[in-house]
Design a protein around this nucleic acid. Structure first.
Lengths: 229, 229
DNA sequence: TGCCATCTTAACACTTTCTTCACATAAGCA
DNA sequence: TGCTTATGTGAAGAAAGTGTTAAGATGGCA
């Protein structure tokens, strides 16, 4: 839970939104909120949150419908906020891929603890390590520094974010649309022109020979892959 | 304990507030006070104090609840002020993360001594060293003085606080929102205009050439960094 | 009250970063 | 091989972020 954690709150009770926003923001989260399921799905698509708090009792559509809609597109951690007597819906939500649930009324500490757990589960190991080293490439995630052959090089914010995303998923092919969604959010079109330019720029900065990359390989027609050690 | 130390006093007895405010202010602290637990938590959130004096016997909510609420969000030093016969609550408070306690009636000198201890305990290593030196920049944290090329220069309170924050985290990039929260507290908006002006002013005072800074570098789109030695 | 230091805000020039375009190069396939 | 599609790359303009000045607001203090 840090300055970069964006929480989407889908909840129809304005007072609860107010209270939770304050609590979460003072814990370093950025909070966006929706008072209906439709608005919630829309915000999820456009703002790419890191975690979602979803109330099952929404005015317009069923909470589980919101959940499965989101799950068709992302495995973002989703915590269900349920009232007593919604046991059936709660279990259904968990079956549909929710990460955890919390029953009203709840203590803010418990909620924060559950959020931390959900986020930790999603945090790739490599970032916990705070540094990454492979051949002559060295990255200090905490200090936001990148070295190639002992020399510090400068990456722009998106270049850095992209490189970290690739390293977090080292070995896996990341599709263009997955990368675009992760970096730019869900509201961007499927154009991968910018992505190609960024990849070229990153390669020029970290690869010895861009045309025979050591770290970032292209999977033609699919996406990019950071090679495993 | 200096002009920048902001103490939050959570206490329902107006006379004690009056007495303590006066004593602390004559010792160079800035004091803000709350007469209820809710108000106390609210002030903590908005004003970002350096230390909290908390009376356990509050009219609205239990002091230990105030304590644990604050502890979910910060490790700011908290000193418990308890009346005789509240031994159980006192121990409970320490378990919940209070730093120290003092029993009424107490002597003001003892309270001041305990405050100094609590503040010292939280001080980062670099500031504990009492002085910082790098090239021609020399800072005496205790005396609250800054020298450049042997000449003393004057920094305003916020400028000094900012510089210390950067030095405490030398090498790391501090994001705009992190810095703003640390310096101004939680109620400020996300506007970094003021921060930019302060950075410009600090640089003009400590850097030889503001456009090629030796100490404070800008990470475009991210924040600022004090360079490592 | 008026003065002084400090802080905030607005305006604008300047720099960096991002997007887009045009075209070169490479890969896949019959 | 020749064709089609996909990817890489340089350059230019747009957009976003930053530095700087100065004017106004604020608050402490004699």
């Amino acid at each position: 839970m840090n300055d970069n954690t964006k929480v989407l709150l889908i909840e129809d009770d304005k007072n609860i939104i107010k209270f939770l926003s304050l609590s979460l923001e003072t814990n370093g989260c950025k909070v966006i909120s929706a008072q209906s399921g439709i608005e919630g799905i829309s915000l999820f698509m456009t703002d790419n949150p890191d975690l979602i708090l979803l109330d099952l009792g929404l005015p317009d559509i069923d909470g589980s419908e919101v959940l499965s809609q989101i799950r068709t597109q992302s495995d973002v951690p989703i915590l269900i906020v349920s009232a007593r007597g919604q046991e059936k819906e709660k279990v259904e939500a968990l079956d549909l891929g929710a990460d955890d649930y919390i029953t009203k009324p709840f203590h803010i500490n418990e909620l924060l603890a559950r959020i931390r757990v959900a986020l930790r589960k999603k945090t790739p190991q490599v970032v916990k390590d705070k540094v990454f080293k492979m051949d002559s490439l060295y990255i200090d995630f905490e200090k936001y520094k990148v070295f190639v052959e002992e020399k510090e090089i400068h990456l722009t914010p998106i270049e850095f974010k992209l490189l970290v995303l690739l390293i977090e998923n080292a070995g896996k092919v990341l599709t263009h649309s997955f990368i675009i969604k992760k970096i730019w959010g869900y509201n961007t079109c499927e154009d991968s022109q910018s992505l190609r330019v960024f990849m070229a720029n990153i390669r020029q900065k970290i690869e010895k020979d861009s045309s025979h990359p050591r770290y970032i390989v292209t999977e033609v027609g699919v996406g990019y892959r950071f090679v495993e050690e």
